[in-house]
Simulated assay, not measured.
Amino acid sequence: MPDSHAVVSTPHASRYLQQLCKHWAHRFETEFSATDARIALPLGETRLSADAETLTIGLTAHDPASLPDLRDVVVRHIERFAFRETLRFEWR
């Protein structure tokens, strides 16, 4: 399964992690705490971890063609919550 990771600098990592999980909890299987999360999306699995300065995002797509779409949907949703700051997502 194809995967991708990004480390995003933000002092609000825990807030964004929790907002994303609460936003999707009514539609998808989610597990989360203030520092770690797992979201089972139709395109694949998203894992997040937060510390005081960074939000780490790990994606595992069901197939290679889905990975760009999975990245896009996760980024768009996090950027909505982070509208007061500009985040940089550098995927590896």
Rank of each mutant, 00 (worst) to 15 (best):
V73I: 15
S66L: 12
P11E: 10
A82Q: 07
A40K: 12
L43R: 09
I39A: 02
G58F: 03
G58E: 10
V8D: 02
L70N: 13
A61C: 07
L43Y: 01
P2V: 13
R88C: 08
F83N: 07
H5L: 05
W91R: 15
E45H: 08
L43K: 15
R92T: 14
V73N: 07
V7W: 00
R47E: 08
P64W: 03
W24Y: 12
R80I: 05
D3F: 06
S14I: 02
T54G: 03
H62Y: 06
K22H: 10
R71Q: 15
T56S: 14
V75P: 01
V74I: 15
H12T: 01
R15I: 14
E31S: 11
L59E: 00
A6H: 04
H5S: 14
A52T: 12
L41V: 08
W91H: 10
L59D: 02
H12D: 07
S49D: 06
H23W: 04
E90C: 13
E31R: 11
F83C: 13
A34T: 13
L20K: 05
D69K: 11
A25N: 12
A82G: 05
V8N: 05
T86C: 05
L17D: 04
T30W: 03
L41Q: 05
E45N: 14
A13Q: 03
A65F: 02
L67A: 11
V75H: 00
Y16P: 04
H12P: 00
H23G: 05
I78M: 06
R47T: 12
P11T: 13
V75G: 01
A61M: 06
T35G: 06
H62V: 10
H62K: 14
A37T: 02
P2S: 13
V74N: 03
L87I: 10
F89K: 12
I39H: 00
W91L: 14
H5M: 06
T86Q: 15
M1P: 09
F81V: 06
L67C: 12
H62G: 15
S14H: 01
L55G: 04
A40Q: 14
M1H: 13
E45Q: 15
D36V: 10
E79C: 11
I57D: 08
M1T: 15
E79M: 07
V7F: 02
Y16H: 11
L55H: 03
T46P: 00
H23D: 09
T30M: 08
P11Y: 01
T60C: 04
R47P: 03
A34Y: 00
W91Q: 13
A61I: 08
L17G: 04
Q18Y: 00
A50F: 01
F32P: 03
H12M: 04
L17M: 09
T35P: 01
Y16T: 05
E53M: 06
R27N: 09
D51H: 04
P42F: 00
L70A: 14
M1R: 11
